[in-house]
């Protein structure tokens, strides 16, 4: 194949892959501290994108400059979702800590459905796809068959930066240390005087903020969002996290990129575009069956 085409696929795949990785990092964080799956993650992502859109529509009336709008959208969108994540954790996830893990999964799944329906019903004309403003510079370089869009580069860079910062936060700060301690062993962490609830809420806020970020990136990249976009992105992000190895940030990155890679491969091989997802999921589910604990996480036995 032509090198330009190849590079083009690579860039597009990278944008996708980073978005998935952002979602997957959230799943990995939640699972790390609390051993729960938060299924509403994808819908939080969607709500983040819609919040940003609403902010933009408001700011547009005040004719705010683009860079300022973008900053406000990013900051407020992320913060609101972080808050929502923490609230969800406090009122729906933590109270169910002692009940079967399935209940947490169900309650967050239902919460996701509530978010989805609320956007569909209460956002003006919410059941239709919404145009998302193109706020990033639209310049692009043509280089043979490669059309390198500046916004792609910015998105890849931002996503990677967010993941690196998250990683640093977890490795280098006190809060990050607390998160790791809780993930390792809740009892011991409590005994060491770590504020368990605060740590868990912080983790949920962090993960949900990242989801909002990836929602906004998706909006900026495709310039369109809709109320059901979170479902698929959530399922993909979860698969990515599982395949990489739940609980490992590197795993989430690897999983996210792998999924995007498989989709790209599927898009090249199959003439019907819808098959690229069928293909990617089939491979991913086969990988899951082969390596149930993921490609990167170590295989630890359940303590009996």
């Amino acid at each position: 194949m032509d090198l330009g085409f190849f590079a083009q696929y690579l860039i597009n795949g990278l944008v996708q892959g980073i978005t998935y990785a952002l979602v997957a990092v959230g799943f990995t964080l939640f699972f790390g501290v609390l051993d729960v799956i938060k299924f509403s993650h994808g819908d939080v992502l969607m709500l983040g994108a819609f919040t940003a859109l609403a902010l933009f529509l408001g700011l547009d009336r005040l004719s705010t400059p683009t860079w300022l709008s973008l900053t406000i959208m990013l900051c407020l969108g992320t913060l609101t979702m972080a808050l929502l994540g923490a609230l969800l954790c406090k009122f729906l996830v933590l109270p169910l800590k002692e009940s079967p893990p399935l209940n947490t999964l169900l309650i967050t799944l239902m919460f996701g459905s509530v978010i989805r329906e609320s956007v569909r019903l209460f956002f003006p004309n919410g059941s239709n796809p919404k145009p998302f403003p193109a706020l990033l510079p639209e310049t692009s370089i043509n280089w043979g068959n490669l059309n390198l869009r500046l916004d792609s580069v910015i998105l890849i860079f931002t996503g990677a930066l967010a993941i690196v910062l998250t990683h640093l936060f977890i490795q280098k700060t006190r809060m990050g240390l607390a998160i790791r301690a809780v993930a390792q062993d809740e009892e011991t962490a409590r005994l060491m005087g770590i504020n368990f609830t605060k740590t868990v809420l912080m983790t949920f806020a962090l993960g949900s903020g990242l989801a909002a970020l990836s929602g906004i990136s998706t909006g900026l990249y495709y310039q369109e969002i809709n109320f059901s976009m979170g479902l698929m992105l959530g399922v993909i992000g979860f698969s990515a996290a599982v395949v990489g190895g739940l609980g490992s940030i590197y795993g989430a990155i690897v999983g996210g990129l792998l999924f995007a890679f498989l989709q790209t491969l599927g898009a090249i091989w199959f003439s019907v575009p819808a098959y690229k997802d069928v293909f990617a999921f089939t491979v991913i589910i086969m990988l899951m069956a082969w390596r149930p604990t993921g490609l990167l996480a170590d295989r630890s036995a359940e303590r009996v």
Binding site: P101, L105, V235, F281, I285
Partner: peptide
């Protein structure tokens, strides 16, 4: 895949199956 993996993954696998079947 459901047998090889743990509880929550069955949820993931069935959700993916449902969505994909519709696409198919």
């Amino acid at each position: 895949p459901i047998l090889r993996t743990k509880g929550h993954y069955a949820a993931l696998i069935t959700i993916a199956f449902g969505i994909l079947l519709r696409t198919f």
